[in-house]
C-alpha cells in the first residue's frame, strides 16, 4: 500500500514538472513572438499591444 502510494506520488510529481516546463516553453515562445520579435510585419501588427503592455517596442 505504502509502496503504491509512493509510486503514484513520484509519477504525479514528475509529470507536474514536465507539464510546467512544457507550459513555460510554450508560454515563453508565445510571449517572445507576439511581444518581442522585431520582424516588421509582426512589429506593426502588435505595435499598440507592445506599448500598452510595457514591452520595449522600438
Amino acid at each position: 500500500m505504502n509502496a503504491t502510494a509512493t509510486q503514484t506520488s513520484q509519477t504525479a510529481s514528475g509529470s507536474a514538472i514536465g507539464a510546467f516546463i512544457a507550459a513555460l516553453l510554450i508560454g515563453g515562445a508565445i510571449i517572445f513572438v507576439t511581444g518581442h520579435v522585431q520582424a516588421e510585419t509582426l512589429h506593426d501588427a502588435a505595435h499598440d499591444v507592445r506599448h500598452a503592455t510595457g514591452f520595449p517596442c522600438h
Partner: peptide, 14 residues
C-alpha cells in the same frame, strides 16, 4: 500575450 502568460501561470499552479 495573456494566453502565453496563462500557460506559465497554470503550469506553475500544477
Amino acid at each position: 500575450v495573456y494566453t502565453g502568460y496563462a500557460f506559465i501561470m497554470v503550469g506553475a499552479m500544477a
